[in-house]
Simulated assay, not measured.
Amino acid sequence: MTTRAQRNKTNPDLGVLAGRLLFAVQNELFSALAAKGFDDLQPRHGAVMAYMDPEGVRATDLARLSGQHKQVIGTLVDELERLGYVQRHPDPADRRAKLVCPTDRGLEQMKAADKIMNALQDRHARRLGRDAFAQFKAAFMDVTEHQRRAVAKKS
């Protein structure tokens, strides 16, 4: 009989695999960002910064896109505002709503993160082959979206 530790070492379940990938990607990304002067960011800030647009995004959309609760996003936006990465502005489409908009520092971070992530993905695409990597990514996106829909139905 195999133990959970043995099974997850040789045949990890989806949650274990997704977690391993997330932590490894976050470690590389945030280490590289720190080396570029963005050492005040933490992986938790990715729930906002990964979905930020130069024109701004509503906090409710950040919550939906990231899968985080609105309260968590609000706390993260507060932190990022204090750190100088984002500002809240009235939404021109609806003055009652606020847009979370990147500052100049936020835009610099977004460009740096895009460059780091592109290099990371390119490294894996070269290692696996571009077609295999594209198939992997498409399948991973499909499984992720299917899982998110299944969870949403139960809520």
Rank of each mutant, 00 (worst) to 15 (best):
A63G: 09
A63W: 01
A63T: 06
R64S: 14
R64V: 13
R64M: 12
R64N: 11
L65H: 11
L65N: 13
S66P: 03
G67H: 05
Q68E: 14
Q68H: 13
Q68F: 11
Q68T: 07
Q68V: 08
H69R: 14
H69E: 15
H69A: 15
H69S: 13
Q71G: 09
V72H: 07
V72R: 09
I73N: 01
G74V: 08
T75F: 11
T75K: 14
T75M: 13
T75N: 15
L76K: 12
L76H: 14
L76G: 10
V77P: 02
V77Q: 02
D78Q: 10
D78A: 13
D78C: 02
E79R: 11
E79L: 04
L80W: 00
E81W: 00
E81Q: 12
E81N: 10
R82A: 15
L83M: 12
L83W: 05
L83R: 11
G84I: 01
G84F: 01
G84Q: 02
G84V: 02
G84Y: 00
G84L: 02
Y85Q: 11
Y85T: 10
V86F: 00
V86E: 01
Q87W: 00
Q87P: 01
R88S: 06
H89G: 00
P90W: 05
D91G: 06
D91E: 09
D91W: 08
D91F: 08
P92Q: 06
P92R: 07
P92F: 08
P92A: 07
P92V: 06
A93N: 14
A93Y: 10
D94P: 06
R95S: 15
R95T: 13
R95H: 12
R95A: 15
R96S: 15
A97L: 13
K98R: 12
K98Q: 11
V100M: 00
C101E: 09
C101T: 13
C101Y: 01
C101H: 04
P102M: 03
P102L: 03
T103N: 02
T103S: 06
T103I: 02
T103W: 00
T103Y: 01
D104F: 05
D104N: 08
R105A: 14
G106E: 02
L107G: 10
E108P: 07
E108R: 15
E108N: 14
Q109E: 14
Q109W: 10
Q109S: 12
M110N: 05
M110V: 07
M110G: 08
M110L: 11
K111H: 14
A112N: 08
A112V: 04
A113I: 03
A113G: 04
A113M: 05
A113W: 01
D114H: 12
D114Y: 09
D114W: 08
K115E: 15
I116G: 02
I116W: 02
I116Y: 04
